[in-house]
Nucleic acid binder design. Sequence first.
RNA 1: GGGUCGAUGGUCUAGUGGCUAUGACGCCGCCUUGACGUGGCGGAAAUCGCAGGUUCAAUUCCUGCUCGACCCACCA
Length: 782
Amino acid sequence: MDFQPKLKEKQWDKSIEQKMFKKWQEEGLYKFDKKSKKPLYSIDTPPPYVNTPIHIGHAYTYVWQDIMARSRRMMGFNVLFPIGLDKNGLPIEVMAEKIFNIKMHETPREEFIAKCKEMLEKAGDASLDSFKRLGLSCNEWQVKYELGGRYDTDDPEYRRLTQETFIQLWRKGLIYEDVKPTNYCPVCGTAIADAEVEYKEGKTKLNYIKFKVKETNEEIIIATTRPELLCSCKIILFNPEDQRYKHLNGKHAIVPIYGQEVEIRAHPYAKPEFGSGLVMICSFGDYGDVRLLRELNIEPTYAINTDGRMNENAGMLKGFLVADARKAIIAELQERDLLVKQEEIDHREPICWRSKNPIEFVALKEFYLKQVEFIPQLLDAANKMNFFAPESKQILIDWINSVSIDWVLTRRRYYGTEVPLWYCKKCNYIYVPDPGKYYQPWKEKPPIEKCPNCGSKEFVGEQRTFDTWFDSSSSEVYILGYLWDKKFFEKHFPCSMRPQGKEIVRNWLYYTLLKSLHLYGKPPFKECWIHMHVVDEKGEKMSKSLGNVIDPHEILDKYGAEAFRIWSCLEGDITHGDIRCSFNRIEGTSKFLTKLWNIARFVSSFPQVEKTELTDTDKWIIDELYLLVERVKNNYKNYEFSDAANDIRNFVWNVFASHYLEMIKVRAYGQGFSEKEQKSAWFTVHFVLKNVLKLLAPIIPFMTDYIWREVYDKESIHKQELPEINYRFGLENYTQKIIEFNSAVWKEKKDKGLSLKAEIAIKVPEELKMFKKDLVKMHNII
RNA sequence: GGGUCGAUGGUCUAGUGGCUAUGACGCCGCCUUGACGUGGCGGAAAUCGCAGGUUCAAUUCCUGCUCGACCCACCA
């Protein structure tokens, strides 16, 4: 009998991948079925920034999300797996400013927005192409405004949702307006949230300045890094334990140059060992100042304006930029012999996460969302979500516990979701529109004729936009169809899964939790998968400045998506720690693809037959398969894809191929065995292959589907469920012994310089007697 | 400064209070074996980050340190 494999080529052809992807799209394989009776599994994927190409970390984590989607689909869930693109906020504006060489605040708003759109248009959807090459099984790639649809965060519909959440929060009394010292980036020209503040290590000068004590006329020395803020000095502190200054308690100091009298007081904030042990508290030099003036209930004097320049409170420094003001005041102090010395010190400066410029504290009237008073509820809700890995939950808990002021919602930017408010020109009544429409108050009239309060017909539209995280933190509401199918939303909220990076727990996950708790009274997700980072060979973060960033396109071009996907599982588990990648091994891990391919080729050369009475060897491998299936299904359930992949590889290569297939080869060819025994082998090889393909389908979807369709079925493997093995024979304990025996025979032949086909006289151990016939034929034992 | 996590052959990983520490990639040697040389068999290669401690016994438990990642923080 001549056996012809159904798979002709000797290895996987990666050019098939994109053909398969196209076929999947044509078939609508992953389209979301709203009417499905299956339980829903919804994934709130992180929308990547549209204008930056995806890097290796993205590729890795989106592949893992795809494995989540595919494995849940094969576990019988109706999977909602939409893809979004983030097109909101500062990064878009900054990019547009750079490309067109314009300044936002010097450009008419309409025109600036048009420029942003033009830029986004040009940038295209490059990152989506990468995702398609990786084979992600998202429901839709282009269709918008429906369940499973692709979305952009600057879609008018998305913005309508953002505005609706604001209106609801407003009506619940959770939003208020207040003047507070606010983190402000003079370069971006906007208030920024605590979560947007970064720190930069650097050197700065600590200036020792002479003050006079009013009551005693004695000279005291105060060290400061912010001499330009002398004008806003409010109080001077020393440590209660500091004997040097005890006598000054309750006395007053006269601030040099400006002459205001400020109290001197004991307070533990002052550290005796720093500077002179005396610290001046200004409004505001840093977070310490903000906290202390709040604590001591002292009215601040703001010295810096929103343009980053000193104001009239700074007297002679008025109009200077902060950095220039510092130079000028130091020169003035030297002139008047008030500067004792300067020391260079290391310190950490708060900077804006986007512009990387130092932030200042300025007085701004902004809208706030209440969060501080909800910390116990937030902790409670956080604890109701299931985290993978469990220890990741601590990142969220720690952040919640550190929240100390409410969330500043408003930004003075253009390319963002508008705050939907109008103000009555006459009586300042704040008009909040009904939800249901996307509002642009800066260029539209309000949807009412006259002020409900005073009857005036003149309104001013709100100019500000929201913090981008205010948009992002409703993504799970958006994808669950809130805007288009409230019933569906209500039935399926909370969302099943939030996959995201550990670095944005404090904003994306936290803010989503906050809004969800405020609006729906429960946590937004059932499960959160928090991933660590892909780092370079040395364990260091990949960044453009270090030049160690790896573009996944190189790998996709060279090895294909399947190689990348199997590598991303075999390389390690990004849930528990950073992944240190070394790409010289991607070639090695992808060898498994070739092995699997050839196993399938071999198996495909035998006829597919009905189950007959099985031989013991066949029963044994099915027992092994059963155990594998149970372990892998459990791995999939718990998102342990690395364990699953390694386990499957080990079974397929080191048990099934190396031992089982070698043992049954002669029988499958039918030499010296009955037809019944031959058919038992035929049945078993296909049975194992079919189930192995199903187990691997979430990880390597292209190749498994290709083999499946060539060998088994016209319909995609991705319509199958994970295997359910109903046979048990109790023979799994023999595996180790079989492997040992075979290895011993091979070694013996090798040691004797014999060909593997050569006859050999060796005794099959008594305990392996049930496999004796196969073993004898396999090794040509005489 | 504080917290969390990580560190196992050249590389990536498994693992455990106790025989000669798992597997893979790479490397070296040998081998056509009716799927696969993108294969098979064999081999070399690790004082399990460093220094202490607990224990009869530690890679595994404890303490300190170094390095890396992430987060937090009020040192002017």
